[in-house]
Amino acid sequence: MSFDRLTLLITFVALALFILVLEMVRRRALAERYSLWWLIISGGVVVLALARPLLDNLIFTQLGISYPPSALFSAGFVGLVIIMLYMSHLITLLTRQNRTAAQRIGLLQHELDLLRDDLAKLKNE
């Protein structure tokens, strides 16, 4: 079984990414739930690249892609799109939660100021 240089390069980069993501999770620089998609994509690319001799024929006959590495890029691209959409979704949620929290801080600070004033008046009496 022999691999061409491109396949080896892709495998190497994807493997490096996989290890980097694992290391970031280990150091708590990345939460497990956000690392999942990155692991699936980088791991998937490694598996696809290594399994290429078995897949070449399938990709060519079933998908009509004459240059097999572009099938690999397509798979990676779809994964990235999913990750980015997921990130936008998370930003939307966080923005909303952040807004609600900021509003509450403002309202509570106001109540606190009023209570402090009342307390000061009571102490003076």
Partner: peptide
């Protein structure tokens, strides 16, 4: 007046909603 100070600029929509929350509560 009473003053509610938001910790940073939230934009007019969120500022108004703060008023609605206050009025409601």
């Amino acid at each position: 007046a009473m003053v509610v100070t938001l910790p940073y600029n939230l934009g007019i929509g969120a500022a108004m909603q703060t008023g609605f929350i206050y009025a409601h509560e």
